[in-house]
Amino acid sequence: MDKTPQNYIEWQTLQQAYDKYEFGSLAIKLLAVILTFVGLITNMQLCLLLSVVAILWLQDGIWKTFQSRFEVRLLEIEKMSETNATSEPAFNTEWQKQRPGVFGLVKAYLCNSLKPTVMYPYIVLLAVIGLSYIFGAK
C-alpha cells in the first residue's frame, strides 16, 4: 500500500467501512436463520415465513450493493499505490457520477442478491421451510 498519507488514510477508512458492511451482511443472515427457526417452531404461516426470508435476502443484496461501492474505490486506491500516484478523495463525487437510475439500482440489488455468498443461506432456509411444511403437514 502506498504510504502517501492521503491515499493511505482514505484506503484505511474505506477498508474499515467495507469490513463493517461485511459484518452487517452476516448479521442479516443470522437474523434470517433465527427468524426461520422461530417461525418453524411457532408454526408461522408459510407465506409469511417465506416473505420474511425473501425480504431479508433482498435486504442483504441491497447491503452488499452498498458495500460494493467501497470496493470500487478501494481497488482504485490500491491500483494507484502500485504507481505511487496520489489522488484527491473523490469517493462520493465519483459514485454520484456513476450512479444508475432507479432501474439500474434495482438491477444492482438483484444481481448482488444472486451472488452465491449472499444467496447461500437463503436458499437453504427456503428449502428447510418448504420441507418442514411438506413433511410436517397434518
Rank of each mutant, 00 (worst) to 15 (best):
T36S: 05
L31H: 00
E82V: 10
L40I: 07
L49N: 02
F66N: 05
K79Q: 05
M44H: 08
T83Q: 15
A32H: 04
F37L: 11
A17E: 11
I77Q: 02
D60A: 14
V53I: 13
E78F: 01
Q16C: 03
W57G: 07
G39V: 13
F66V: 04
L30F: 15
L56E: 12
R73A: 05
K79H: 07
E78D: 10
L31V: 03
L30G: 08
A32P: 04
K79T: 14
Q16R: 14
A32F: 06
L75G: 03
L40Q: 01
T65N: 12
T83K: 13
A32G: 09
L46E: 08
V72S: 12
D60V: 10
I77G: 09
L74I: 08
I62H: 07
K64C: 15
Q16F: 12
E82T: 15
S81K: 06
K29Y: 04
Q67S: 01
E10N: 08
T13Q: 14
L30E: 01
N84P: 01
I62G: 10
K20M: 12
L40E: 04
M44C: 13
E71D: 11
I62T: 05
A54E: 01
L48A: 04
V38L: 15
S68E: 11
L46G: 07
V72F: 15
W57E: 07
Q12C: 04
K29R: 07
C47L: 15
K79R: 08
M44W: 10
L56D: 09
E22K: 09
I34M: 12
L35D: 00
E22I: 13
I77R: 00
Q67K: 01
G61D: 04
G61T: 10
V72K: 15
L74E: 05
N43P: 01
K20I: 10
N43Y: 02
Y18T: 11
Q59A: 13
C47A: 09
I41L: 10
V33D: 03
S51V: 01
N43F: 06
R69Q: 14
Y18A: 09
A17Y: 11
G39T: 03
L74S: 09
A17F: 11
M44R: 04
S51K: 00
Y21V: 08
K20G: 07
D60P: 03
V53G: 03
C47W: 13
I77K: 02
L49V: 07
L48S: 08
F37Y: 12
N43W: 08
E76R: 04
G24F: 07
K29W: 02
